[in-house]
Simulated assay, not measured.
Amino acid sequence: MSSRPHGQPRPYRAGRRAETAAETRAAILEAALRLFLERGYGKVTVGDIARESGTAVPTVYASTGGKASILAHFISEGIGDPIVDQTLSAVNACRDPRETVAVATHGVRVDNEQYFALLQVLNTAAALDETAAETLARANRVYREALAVVAGRLEELGALRAGLTRGRATDILWFFLGHPSWRLYVADCRWSWNETEQWLAQQVSAALLDDGIG
């Protein structure tokens, strides 16, 4: 006779259910991302995601919360990418202002390049969906906060142009290194990522650094 208390589920059953739920969620997320990239956010329905992932519409909602929540999940992954902390750590370790700009620009480039297609989806979705617009606003806010760290490091090094505050320097960094600039030069103008990185780093240095910086 089993010593397990009456009505208590077997541990392996609960574990298997959790594993199955995780596998289902992963399949839904993978299918949704594939469809978003292939068709664009606005042309994908929850029904499409369900069919692509081999699940039912209620399962998609129960597992992920729907289209906007799925998109927010992927953006959150991007925000939490280790490249962000790695870049900021490297920036704070720099003692040369131009090297600081180069390191920051390269880290931003890697992040944008890795999530370029997803950011295109998010920008399109933001015009159609209020939740997606809020997700974009949150992503941009975190992005600007990271750029403020770069501006702060340049200020600590005494490298900013006379009269240029940390806040204004952050605005300038956002102008040159924000998502729109990468999209403009890489997608619209067909520049390579290397060309774009080098040119933007030059423009940031010219705009922010004191003329006396070698």
Rank of each mutant, 00 (worst) to 15 (best):
D111M: 14
E155P: 00
A159Q: 04
A146P: 02
L136C: 03
E130D: 15
F116W: 12
A137F: 08
N140C: 09
A159E: 07
L147Y: 03
T135H: 10
V110D: 14
D111W: 15
A125C: 05
N112I: 06
L136N: 14
A146C: 08
A139W: 15
R153V: 09
A117V: 09
V121D: 03
G163R: 08
Q114A: 13
R109E: 14
L136V: 04
A148M: 12
T135E: 10
V121T: 11
L128P: 01
G158W: 06
A159N: 02
E145F: 11
V149L: 13
Q114P: 01
E155D: 10
G163F: 03
V149Q: 07
V121Q: 07
A139V: 11
L154E: 05
A148N: 06
V121H: 11
V150F: 07
T131V: 11
V150P: 06
A127N: 08
L136T: 06
A127V: 01
N123W: 07
F116Q: 08
E113T: 10
G158M: 08
L122V: 04
V110L: 09
A126D: 05
A126R: 05
A126G: 02
L119R: 11
E134P: 03
Q120C: 06
A117I: 04
V110F: 00
R153C: 10
L128H: 00
L147M: 12
G158L: 13
D111F: 13
Q114V: 06
A117N: 09
T135I: 03
A139Y: 15
E134D: 15
V142W: 09
V121M: 05
A127C: 02
L128Q: 09
V110M: 06
T135K: 08
T124D: 14
V142Q: 12
A148D: 05
G152H: 09
A133T: 02
N140M: 15
A132L: 08
V142E: 00
L118H: 12
F116C: 04
V149P: 02
A137K: 12
E156D: 14
E134Y: 01
E145G: 13
V150N: 07
R144D: 01
R161V: 04
R161N: 02
G152P: 04
N140W: 06
N112E: 07
R144P: 01
L147A: 11
L119H: 14
L157S: 07
L147F: 09
E155K: 06
L118K: 04
D111K: 11
T135Q: 13
A132P: 04
N112R: 10
D129H: 00
N123E: 14
A162D: 14
A162I: 01
T124L: 01
N123H: 15
A132E: 12
Y143A: 12
D111N: 08
A133L: 11
G163L: 00
V142N: 06
T124G: 05
